[in-house]
Design a protein around this nucleic acid. Structure first.
Lengths: 140, 140
DNA sequence: TTAAGTGCAAAAGCTTTGCATTGCC
DNA sequence: GGCAATGCAAAGCTTTTGCACTTAA
């Protein structure tokens, strides 16, 4: 992952800057683990109350282009953003909504299979796997 | 899958009916493969122009409760609905948006692993796997 | 100076809700 | 008649867009 300095350079090459708002959004994403744009906005507004949710959306887009954050569809509703170093596969229970995480290596075999059979390069962190968690199954 | 008759009985037990609108929605879902509520609505309106999108949403909810259709999040934006017998795993290319399908058995090993390690019962049809398709990779 | 970045308001997409009307049983 | 189902309009929620103002290089 790029450090502060190289991030600034990357932005500078594109005629862009690391503004306080963008830094706050990045900090919030890193701190919150995975969070919706609105949650991120709330967090940011804890420090800088006037930051608008529009700016949060724009900052998230930019940070995603830069490869610093990514978003994941954990289930219905809003996507959640997480820092790039937060590399897990998400398991979303569609009964209770709980999100669990497993090591990304669990998908290695599948990824290889998809590549050899279809030429499809799997991005295992982008979407959650959906199903029923142990608790909910046992509650049946 | 239940046939016409048993479907009617199931509905009847709940004090509900198989209305023309619901039948049209079910037909449209089966015919279209996977389609958004709006696409389904357009299709239905080809036959019965006055059917409202509200009714489509309500019919889809009901048909999903009855296990006749299911919805899948193929990526950003609207979910797509497909008939229950339409059992594939979806591969969504996040570059070009193309949707490909692979046999569900490809996930058997993974499903078994998740069950034994986490007690998580995978529902492989609910969410698409995200990545980059061959065309887009070769276009690099 | 000037182009990027921001905030605000409004628009846009998707989905749900409230309510009066319709039509089966 | 009574209740489910429908259509319509309006509201709700998330996200995007347009635009004028601000600010850092």
């Amino acid at each position: 992952m790029s450090d502060q300095g190289s991030l600034r350079s990357t932005l500078h090459e594109r005629g862009m800057r690391m503004t306080p708002q963008r830094q706050l959004v990045l900090d919030a994403v890193r701190e919150l683990g995975h969070a919706t744009p609105e949650e991120i906005c709330k967090k940011v507004q804890g420090t800088a109350a006037t930051v608008n949710i529009t700016t949060v959306y724009r900052a998230l887009d930019l940070l995603e282009q830069l490869g610093l954050v990514r978003h994941t569809h954990l289930g219905h509703g809003a996507p959640t953003y997480s820092a790039e170093e937060h590399e897990h596969v998400h398991l979303a229970c569609h009964r209770c909504g709980r999100i669990d995480e497993v090591a990304i290596e669990l998908l290695d075999d599948l990824a290889e299979l998809l590549m050899s059979e279809r030429g499809f390069e799997l991005d295992p962190t982008h979407l959650a796997l959906s199903g029923t968690c142990r608790n909910c199954r046992e509650a049946d």
